[in-house]
């Protein structure tokens, strides 16, 4: 395989990995604060339809993306209200949010079926984008691809080096101690949940504006669930989320290319299993290998905060 075939394949991988990365990195922050929001799929769908509707309505994709971010936040606030203020069970509320989001998105979207929209433009950087091979690979993407990587970098820095990130982690590890030294646990968790909603909304916008610029019902096709699994895959570490998204996207794309190359005598269903099996195997190797670290699941994940009063 030479560079001429490898390059477009890598570009396809980047496109496939971006929505997973966006949704997963948001969920990672949510989970780091100790909250498990299983409503990613629903928030992505609402983000997708709002991005599409606003872009078609205003002609501005940027407004569409912003609207999608707010739509994601709005849905996440419903989740926050239930789980943080009213202390409802997080797992069930997240699943209910997905059911709700699927319904809301198809209600809003019914009048947009069959409408095309301009694909999100590539940000052309004069000079850089024109470099052979590296140009298109590194500088030939739309704004959301850059955003996905930028958000990952920021989140990694935020969690590791910022004071606010430290507080967030403290809240996720031990809400009672964080509370007792004076941090507002609920407020921190609200912000983290909203960030997750924002990222899921943008991930949805990427689907309906760039990946497949259209609106059709249920267009996420389960990507929200994969994003959730990737957070666990990454052992709650931002860089590993990036790695996981690209491994999953990469194997998905690779098997399509292998099929296109004439197949290798393996049934197509087995080829389609590969991305799932690959993630399991890679995680097993990481977890079992000599470099295994301490498991980073936040200690309070999924548990409601009930301050003794």
């Amino acid at each position: 395989m030479n560079i001429d075939t490898l390059l477009p394949m890598l570009l396809t991988v980047i496109a496939a990995a971006t929505p997973l990365l966006l949704a997963a990195i948001g969920e990672l922050v949510t989970e780091k604060s100790g909250v498990l929001n299983l409503g990613v799929e629903g928030m992505m769908l609402v983000g997708a339809v709002i991005a599409f509707a606003v872009t078609v309505g205003t002609g501005s994709a940027i407004l569409g993306i912003i609207a999608a971010a707010f739509a994601g936040i709005a849905l996440s606030l419903v989740f926050g209200l239930l789980t943080l203020t009213l202390m409802a069970n997080q797992v069930a509320t997240g699943l209910a949010l997905t059911i709700f989001g699927i319904g809301v998105s198809s209600l809003i979207g019914s009048s947009y079926i069959g409408t095309p929209v301009e694909k999100l433009a590539v940000l052309h950087i004069p000079g850089l984008s024109d470099i052979p091979v590296l140009g298109p690979l590194l500088f030939g993407h739309d704004i959301l691809v850059y955003a996905s990587v930028a958000i990952t970098v920021l989140v990694a820095w935020f969690l590791k080096s910022s004071r606010a990130g430290l507080i967030l982690r403290a809240v996720g590890e031990s809400d009672l101690s964080a509370h007792s030294i004076g941090y507002d646990v609920i407020k921190v968790r609200y912000l983290a949940v909203m960030f997750g909603g924002l990222c899921s909304g943008i991930a949805g916008a990427y689907l309906s504006l760039s990946y497949t610029p259209m609106w059709v019902e249920g267009m996420t096709a389960g990507r929200g669930w994969i994003a959730l699994a990737l957070v666990a895959f990454a052992s709650w570490r931002p860089w590993r989320v990036l790695g996981g998204a690209y491994i999953f996207g990469g194997v998905t794309i690779l098997q399509l290319y292998l099929q296109g190359a004439g197949g290798i005598g393996i049934p197509a269903q087995v080829m389609n299993m590969l991305p799932y099996l690959a993630t399991i195997i890679v995680l097993t190797v990481i977890s079992a290998g000599p470099w295994r670290g301490r498991l980073d699941a936040p200690a309070c994940l999924g548990k409601p905060f009930r301050p003794a009063s």
């Binding site: 239930l82 069970n89 069930a92 509320t93 699943l95 059911i99 709700f100 699927i102 809301v104 019914s110």
Partner: peptide, 19 residues
């Protein structure tokens, strides 16, 4: 879609009432 929204609402209320 409407039944999905309604079902979601029902679940929200059930879960919230735990409070």
């Amino acid at each position: 879609a409407v039944t999905g929204v309604f079902q979601g609402m029902l679940l929200f209320f059930l879960l919230a009432s735990d409070f």
